[in-house]
Design a protein around this nucleic acid. Structure first.
Lengths: 337, 337
DNA sequence: TAGTCTGATGTAATCGGTTACATGAAACCG
DNA sequence: CGGTTTCATGTAACCGATTACATCAGACTA
């Protein structure tokens, strides 16, 4: 591969001049510039990014910390593909590449510094963290990286850290309000694991809106699931056994909502006539299963672009990290309510 | 950030010795090694990867070329998340990081060298290509990269290139055989775009198996879709208008199969009693929509791990690239047939 | 015309590692 | 005991860029 020295030699100029042609073209004469660029194209010269990074301490790379462990469930984020595409596109527009980091092999599998170390070795300009909901110490350790960090769907602040999250409470309110407007008076909910922060927020907003409408949420009408299909099915089965049974259910995740619909159908009841169901997330299935799942949608693309923007703001050198971003949630009306 | 020189100074040894501690520990004395490692931990020394890459020409990074363009559809790969997770895990196990490359800003948006240049600048040890089905010249130009390349779901060979694909023909055969075994005699198919290679293969296998069973496929019973829901709905509507209408349909993609089921239900018919439906891909919805979609599944995880393995084989330095990998497809039985 | 300014370019140090080769001490051998 | 190995370590060139500083020619100024 031809180096800058080779190119300089061929052009009869110094390496400094060649470097200037690519970095500060305005200071080199028109004539020299043309000559160098022409010769560069001819011999296929391309600057070596490792060398540039070494010299400038800027890599144009953003590290992605995403703890994908086959064996544990929970690493899976339903929107990941949309988020990744948006993130990558937004970063690409600024000339940044996205480096999906492997945990540092120098640290053991359980070492809380395994991501921090990987980040520090690679001269990345910034870091995006995709949470798997586990609040892994190795992820939380990243606050110590002296590098701009943006976490997705994870409370994460520090001197160089901020995060992006959906307006989960608002979404919960939206769901409640919608069901109330549809005339429901007895509304139950299938929530997520107690310690899951987004789930808790959704529940809070949901309860608020019900209470405000004079429809307090009975403890009996709150059943916890784990975001997966079967738990939604089980929870709904439990709710259908109540007497009187609720006429509407808010599931804190679409997969659970689908499970709930299944349970309702199995009980010989109809959606939405006997029981209305509303979900949260707007995953692909929501649009595809009959009768179509009404749901609260999160702005997946917004996660990616907001992360890129927060990062760019920090790279631009503001002293304090940007405020956390809360993305609006909106209601998608389909047949299930 | 502390450098190797700093660490060497503190330990009273030369930089070469420190370097050896991390790269060829067996040649340095037990005592010195302990001392250096201890001091390294103390001052938080970590080798700078850019410098290492510059010196060794090995970056431990694999470039990912994935042309994500918001504006065009088609960049979306239904399995991408599974593939990415598997790919990343497999690469991580070998200490390799995955660099999602932005197109080279030095090249224009339409420049066929925009990925090639990005690859060449970054000293990546290998490249994985995720196809969007468009046979973009900029993707095809990567055969010229003097770097091991593995393409997913794309015919792609060259002196350092190979590819991974599903046994699409076999999957087509599987679908046909299954329907025949279920007793169907009049079987139609909703295929993909004529120029789409996987779709064509699926059709070929499907037709073969029908013919072998003495049930030649009439032209009328082949309708093309575009892999999206609506096209499946439209195609099925068309097929239902035939007299006699087919008793079973093979859709070359699950989304189209879901569209087909919708059309069947809308026509007041039942699945599978009036018309059986089988799909291809095994996307998430397949398991979730009633009555459950029987489908031919592709080994998503296999794509990722096979890509990593082919890459590793090339990195290990075989003169010729590994043979293309064809992943087996298998039948998943659910309620729709 | 001497002095200053400006614009284009060159010189060389530097970024943080790796590694071929040199060195020197200790161990081994006949 | 001299000579050869072996082992641990040091010296210094090198990877391919960037950039502070120096240089120098020509234009401009008083």
């Amino acid at each position: 591969m031809s180096s800058i020295r080779e190119l300089a030699r061929r052009c009869g100029v110094s390496v400094a001049t060649v470097s200037r042609v690519f970095n500060t073209p305005e200071v080199v004469s028109q004539q020299t510039r043309q000559h160098v660029l022409g010769m560069a194209a001819e011999i296929g010269y391309l600057p070596n990014e490792s060398a540039r990074t070494l010299a400038t301490k800027k890599s144009n790379m953003v590290g992605l910390v995403w703890d994908t462990d086959h064996r544990r469930p929970g690493w899976r984020h339903p929107f990941l593909q949309d988020i990744l595409v948006a993130l990558k596109s937004a970063l690409s527009a600024h000339g940044l590449h996205l480096l999906m980091l492997a945990p540092d092999p120098g640290a053991g599998p359980g070492d809380p510094r395994r991501f921090l170390r990987a980040v520090q070795r690679h001269n990345v300009d910034g870091v995006v963290i995709i949470d798997n909901g586990s609040r892994d110490p190795a992820v939380l350790a990243l606050v110590d990286a002296e590098v701009p960090c943006v976490a997705l769907d994870l409370l994460f602040t520090g001197p160089t850290c901020t995060y992006i999250t959906s307006d989960n409470a608002g979404g919960g309110r939206l769901a409640a309000t919608h069901l109330i407007e549809r005339g429901h008076r007895h509304i139950a909910t299938i929530t997520g694991p107690a310690r899951n922060w987004p789930a808790a927020q959704r529940l809070t907003g949901f309860r608020e809106a019900l209470t405000a409408a004079g429809l307090p949420l009975a403890d009996d009408d709150v059943v916890a699931g784990d975001f997966y299909l079967d738990s939604g099915h089980a929870a709904m089965t439990e709710l259908l056994a109540r007497d009187p049974r609720p006429t509407a259910v808010f599931a804190a995740g679409d997969e659970m909502a689908v499970g709930a619909i299944k349970a309702i159908h199995e009980a010989g009841l109809r959606v939405p006539d006997d029981v209305a169901v509303i979900g949260f997330d707007d995953i692909e299935v929501a649009a595809l299963i009959p009768p179509g799942l009404t749901t609260v949608t999160q702005d997946k693309t917004g996660f990616g672009t907001a992360a890129a923007e927060s990062l760019m703001a920090m790279l631009a050198g503001t002293a304090t990290p940007p405020e956390p971003t809360t993305l609006p949630t909106t209601l998608i009306l389909r047949g299930s309510t």
